[in-house]
Amino acid sequence: MTLSQFEIQDINQTVLLWLDEVRKRTLIAMQQHLDISIKHDARDLVTNVDRDNEQFLNAKIRSYDSEASIVSEEGFGDHQKNMQGNVWFVDPIDGTMNFVKEQADFAVMIALYIDNEPVLGWILDVVNNVVYHGGPQVGVFANQLRLEQPNNDALSDGIVLLSGARLLYGMFGYDKIAKAALGYRVIGAAGPSFLRVISGRAVGYSSKMMPWDFAAGQVLAKTLGLSISDIDGRPLDMLSSNIVLVATNRAHRDILMLHQS
């Protein structure tokens, strides 16, 4: 189903209002005591803010789009089996460790796919009060500023962002990729890393991600003409974890070659 320009704009403006409210709630919560729990290990945290934001956003989505399905991180979504119809992805706090320890480099992310096609994505940089949003029918914006496609730089011409744990153990050729790049960084969160790539501050980013980690970033990256796939060059599975690679077209080719060598 193809939405009209009016429908796209209505959805976009509605979600921007939700995100403005979520930002206010998150900033207030940051000044208060955080209820922090461990999910799988000491590096995998969840807070009351993650849960509260997800419940708030999921309720908004269900009220606005009652027939939709929701894939979200903290257990308040649906057990989705396919990508038919309207499927929303919600990451209520992306980069929870950064949120807890640094209060920087974290994001709130939402995406809408219809019949497995990317429609709209939103990445809220909470601290800097910037929402990166858009999709293939409208382009990509940082608040009201329209973004252009980043320069098609090679891996050797720019900074690459990588998963720290997998870089440390030389997995997926990350050690070779880091050495081939002009420089490398570890941010520790998907949303802020995607933003560096789509804004041209990095030539690529790769990490293991769940669907809510990459859904919004994929919408924005594809709209800007960037390449995104798994680390073997295949399309991403929208309902399972992937080793995601997003990069300029030249850096994407460079990284795939290094991974496969």
Rank of each mutant, 00 (worst) to 15 (best):
Q80P: 11
A107Q: 03
D44L: 11
V90I: 09
K60H: 12
I61H: 04
Q103H: 06
S72D: 13
L57H: 04
V130K: 07
D94R: 10
D125R: 02
V119E: 00
R51D: 08
F99P: 07
E54D: 05
P136D: 05
R51V: 12
K60S: 09
E67W: 08
F56S: 05
R43G: 15
D50G: 04
Q80T: 07
E73P: 12
S69K: 13
I110W: 00
S69N: 11
A104E: 10
V119N: 00
D52C: 14
F76D: 12
W88A: 03
N58V: 06
D78K: 06
E102M: 14
V87E: 06
E102R: 10
K60L: 13
N128S: 15
V119D: 00
Y113Q: 04
S69M: 07
A68I: 14
F89G: 04
K101G: 11
N86M: 10
D50Q: 10
R51A: 04
I93H: 06
I70M: 09
A107E: 01
A68N: 13
I114S: 06
V131L: 05
D52N: 11
G139Y: 06
F76V: 13
L57G: 02
V100P: 14
V130W: 01
V119Y: 00
D115P: 09
H133Y: 02
D91E: 14
F76L: 15
V119T: 03
I110F: 01
H133G: 01
V140S: 02
V46D: 02
G85F: 07
L124E: 01
K101N: 12
L57P: 03
S69D: 12
D52K: 08
Q137D: 06
G134E: 04
E73K: 09
V108D: 02
N48A: 13
M109S: 09
E102Q: 08
G139L: 09
L45Q: 04
V108Q: 03
N129V: 02
G135A: 15
T96A: 15
M97P: 11
L120N: 01
Q55S: 09
V71R: 05
L120I: 03
D91Y: 11
I93L: 10
E117F: 04
Y132F: 13
E74W: 14
I70L: 12
D65T: 15
E67Q: 13
E74K: 10
